[in-house]
Design a protein around this nucleic acid. Structure first.
Length: 636
RNA sequence: GCUGCCGUAGCUCAGUGGUAGAGCACUCCCUUGGUAAGGGAGAGGUCGAAAGUUCAAUCCUUUCCGGCAGCACCA
């Protein structure tokens, strides 16, 4: 057999995993938990009886960790069955950070139950039960699970394709239907796991089915990694934009307007900083800003197809004359109306209509989440009306614009997914072929790599989805670029081509930030509230040491304001220690402290947020320096 | 929307079947202090809303509203 490093091992006959590992080395023999045979993960105990590419999987490897987490799910199921025998087990896979198992049980699991289950899991690990694979005949397996009252498992076996092996795994008295592979024994799991929470989940993910109780846990190769993960969770909680939004007095949300944001002065300043920046970038990139109406007549939504498909999520209003109107959930129909308001020439194309579009969508209550998912939001939306042969160049230009904007906001890593035709769609396959080809050539011409997201395109066309990675390594989908051969025709948009005939333009839907509200939520968490100077709502606070220097503090603040800096003054009756603490907690990037010395020689003591030191600077110099540092990034 | 948990002062949280407390924040007074909490006093609550049980409900029950976690959803 061949090993990953290219070496070859020869055995006289069939050989089991532990012997292969032992033949390679004693260290590996101890660390081995599973095998990979010709790319397929297998139990360590499985026998290799032919020439194959074999690799030993250890718990430190990604696929080893996945097996370990899957085992954690089984151990949890065993613990639950021991403690609550009336529970039925269903599915229990590994996740990116751990595992879960869905249980069917009349009584809800409580937080205290979790403590007991976790204790029992640790005990099962200490028992070090052997985990054995058994291959069963299909009907016998169904009968077995039916006998022991596991109806979900029995049901599921019926859906496993004929010809596939029905494998059961036995550990102690617990038997579970599972494809595997698994660890050799429960002891191999180790103790680096923790149960996290319990939540509802539908059987097979379908809301029409019974709702099960899902217990989530996290599991790692060792205690250090577990601690690190738990620490990262704490860090995420510390950065939670809902918490920082309150602490930094940026915004609040309330039951008087569920799913909508009350922007406070500082939060709105941040919002405006972003909007102003985006406006400059759009202007420079040849977009024309427009503003469409909020409330539009039902007939338009019927024509666009929204009334039929999305009425559930639209807010409907009725006027006194009994007209039915809807708050717009997106801006595209309005932009088409602007486009087709007069006769258009091919000479005008590409025509890029941009809008900070206020949209309302009646999102399900359970989906709402701070700024990340709201019912009233602003899209940095634009629609490019163009000819088919312009799709590629517009796509390239958009990708460049987007990446440059993300960089300015401090996001260097951007992932791209290509979402192609969904099962339910409008338009012929031939049109989809052209749209997908044009989009693919655009992203490839821009020199960007992407992964495929099959079947996830919009119903009217394929799209690129742009994901940015934040400081905690989390991915957020923000930008999008969609090719639409449908809606312009549907809403009657056309232009006069070079040939004098009417043509239907292609429409490119695109957004960089996506929802401005959500993007601000991401920014807050990315920066943990410590915004770069150009974004910070308040860039500096001038703090006096004694009331004697209050006048000079005011003078310093005026000098800053004149230079275009956003500053506040603190001449309050508190010690400087208190002021430093207070403004540090408010995450103001810069403090300009003025005492008797500074007032005497017209200087300031400049202190950076989080810094331990301060720097004495002439007032003019400090202002000039801050002004330079606070410069808004501009398109080069 | 579904399941579970939660809702007491602006915030973080104690607490009780006999109508409530702490710390921080806030207001005032003293203090004028050189880089992460100076001292004192005061004010602040229809205990999410409604109905029910009870002599009596913030506490028990039901419904509703809102929040959190997950599921489903995200055109």
């Amino acid at each position: 057999m061949s090993l990953p490093d290219g070496k070859r091992l020869t055995f006289p006959g069939p050989v089991a995993g532990p012997d292969i590992a032992a033949a390679i080395g004693p260290g590996l023999a101890r660390a081995a938990i599973a095998l990979r045979v010709d790319g397929q993960p297998r139990d360590l105990a499985s026998v290799v009886d032919r020439d194959a590419a074999v690799a030993i999987i250890t718990r430190e490897m990604p696929e080893g960790l996945e097996i370990l987490r899957h085992d954690a799910a089984h151990v949890m199921a065993e613990a639950v069955k021991e403690l609550y025998p009336d529970t039925e087990v269903t599915f229990g896979p590994a996740t990116d950070t751990g595992f879960y198992y869905d249980f069917a049980r009349a009584e809800p699991f409580t937080a205290e139950d979790l403590v007991g289950i976790e204790e029992r899991m640790r005990e099962i690990v200490r028992r070090d039960e052997k985990i054995a694979r058994e291959v069963w005949e299909r009907d016998a397996a169904v009968a077995f699970f039916r006998d022991i009252g596991e109806t979900y498992k029995a049901e599921y076996i019926g859906e496993i394709p004929r010809g596939e092996e029905i494998s059961l795994y036995r550990q102690g008295d617990f038997v579970d239907l599972c494809a595997g592979p698994h660890l050799p024994s429960t002891g191999c799991l180790g103790q680096a796991f923790k149960l996290m929470n319990v939540a509802g989940a539908y059987w097979r993910g379908d809301p029409r089915n019974a709702q099960l109780q899902r217990i989530y846990g996290t599991a790692w190769a060792n205690q250090r990694e577990l601690d690190q993960y738990l620490h990262q969770l704490e860090e995420a909680e510390r950065r939670d934009h809902r918490r920082l939004g309150r602490e930094l007095d940026l915004f609040h949300m309330g039951e008087e307007a569920v799913g909508s944001v009350f922007w406070h002065p500082r939060g709105w300043k941040l919002y405006r900083n972003i909007e102003d920046y985006m406006r400059r970038r759009l202007d420079a990139a040849g977009y024309l800003e427009v503003k469409g109406p909020q409330l539009l007549d039902r007939s338009l939504w019927e024509a666009s197809g929204h009334w039929e498909n999305f009425a559930e999520n639209m807010f409907i209003a009725e006027s006194r004359d009994e007209k039915i109107l809807a708050l717009k959930p997106m801006s595209c129909p309005g932009h088409v109306l602007i486009f087709r308001n007069r006769l258009r020439s091919y000479r005008e194309l590409p025509l890029r209509l941009a809008e900070f579009g206020s949209c309302h969508r009646n999102e399900p209550s359970g989906a709402l989440h701070g700024l990340m998912r709201v019912r009233a939001f602003t899209q940095d939306d634009a629609h490019i009306f163009c000819m088919e042969e312009q799709i590629t160049s517009e796509g390239i230009a958009f990708c460049e614009l987007l990446l440059s904007i993300y960089r300015d906001f401090g996001f260097e890593e951007v992932g791209i997914k290509f979402a192609d035709r969904p099962p339910v769609r409008t338009g012929s396959d031939e049109v989809w072929d052209r749209a997908e080809a044009a989009l693919r050539s655009a992203v490839e011409a821009a020199g960007l790599s992407y992964t495929l997201n099959p079947g996830e395109g919009a119903f009217y066309g394929p799209k690129l989805e742009f994901y940015l990675r934040d400081a905690l390594g989390r991915e957020w989908q923000c930008g999008t670029f969609q090719v639409d051969f449908e809606m312009p025709g549907r809403l009657g948009a056309s232009y006069v081509g070079e040939d004098g005939a009417r043509h239907v333009p292609v429409m490119l839907h695109r957004a960089v930030l996506g929802s401005v509200e959500r993007f601000i939520g991401i920014l807050i968490e990315h920066y943990a509230g410590r915004f770069p100077l150009w974004l910070a709502p308040v860039q500096a606070v001038v703090a006096s040491i004694t009331s004697e220097t209050a006048d000079y503090a005011g003078e310093v603040a005026r000098a800053c304001t004149t230079a275009g800096l956003r500053v506040t003054v603190d001449t309050g009756n508190e010690k400087i220690n208190y002021k430093v603490r207070e403004h540090s907690l408010a995450k103001i990037p810069v403090m300009l402290v003025v005492g008797r010395r500074e007032a005497a020689n017209r200087s300031v003591a400049l202190r950076r947020l989080g810094g331990k030191e301060h720097e004495a600077l002439a007032l003019d110099e400090a202002v000039a320096r801050l002004k330079e540092e606070a410069a808004v990034p501009s398109p080069s």
